[in-house]
């Protein structure tokens, strides 16, 4: 009884659906919904999280992430240029930096900054400065690679045309290459921003006052206070409020700018 291709395809799909339904049923029937409800959806506890979770925690997460991203972008741009430089020492230093900081967990980097800088330089950093620096260093290693790839993907012809007009390497970079590279790297940069948002949860390692708590620590603190997992849900939703729109933005940018920096949908 040989099956035709269509029948085989339909059978395959049917099996997949059956498995999916079975898994869902298994989870749904074995989970203790009453306990989950009590643990995660305690409305009273949820209500008590406001306005602190927005006014303090969400605000801090946004501030730490934004500041860290600015530093990461600036550092990353410099590092990318160093990696592309004709000066060997720059290439080596930048290369070592990127390999090193991409290879370490952000957790360790935050701890190192928190203790290392005060020990080395004898002065303790303001906690916001410290987390900004740590996030900036973590992000810069990834952004350097993204920006470098973006710059290198700008077609050589663009550079040749600019140089042929008498534009110096600096002017070529500033007016032609970087604007074009920028559009190419916008989607991955947006992704990096999402990652940095999650890494901001490491701020607790540096020690914080109650006003400096970001979302994750706020949630854990409340978890301890109320012995309920609801704060985790609330805080999680706040994270998604930040990351989901960013994700959407990244996808839209990718559609708009494609991979060649040229507006899509134009006739040639």
């Amino acid at each position: 009884m040989a099956l035709t291709r269509r029948q085989r395809a339909r059978l395959g799909r049917g099996v997949q659906y059956a498995i999916a339904v079975a898994v869902v049923l298994l989870v749904a029937l074995t989970a203790d919904w009453a306990t989950i409800g009590r643990a995660f959806f305690d409305l009273e506890v949820a209500a008590s999280q406001f306005p602190g979770v927005i006014v303090i925690a969400l605000r801090n997460t946004i501030v730490f992430t934004a500041l860290g991203f600015v530093v990461a972008l600036a550092l990353g741009l410099v590092l990318a240029l160093m990696r592309l430089s004709s000066v060997r020492i720059y290439r080596l230093v930048a290369g070592a930096y990127v390999e090193f900081f991409r290879g370490l967990p952000a957790l360790l980097i935050v701890i190192a900054i928190g203790f290392g800088v005060p020990l080395a330089f004898g002065t303790i950093l303001d906690r916001t400065v410290a987390i900004t620096l740590a996030l900036g260093i973590v992000g810069s290693a990834y952004i350097a690679e993204t920006v470098r790839a973006g710059i290198q993907s700008v077609p050589r012809g663009q550079v040749e045309a600019a140089r042929s007009l008498g534009m110096s390497p600096l002017r070529t970079m500033v007016f032609i290459v970087i604007p074009q590279a920028f559009r190419i790297v916008l989607p991955p940069l947006t992704n990096e921003l999402i990652l940095l948002t999650k890494d901001s949860s490491l701020a607790f390692l540096l020690g914080t006052t109650l006003e400096q708590q970001e979302l994750a620590q706020f949630g854990r603190s409340a978890l301890n206070q109320f012995r309920s997992l609801t704060p985790i849900l609330v805080v999680g939703l706040c994270y998604l409020i930040i990351t989901i729109p960013l994700s959407y933005l990244a996808r839209r940018l990718e559609r708009k700018y494609g991979s060649a920096g040229m507006p899509k949908g134009a006739e040639v």
Binding site: V117, F121, T123, I124, L125, L133
Partner: peptide, 14 residues
């Protein structure tokens, strides 16, 4: 760029 970044350190009101 390095100067800008380092200027942020050591400038700690605390």
């Amino acid at each position: 760029a390095t100067a800008v970044v380092l200027a942020g350190c050591g400038n700690s009101p605390d």
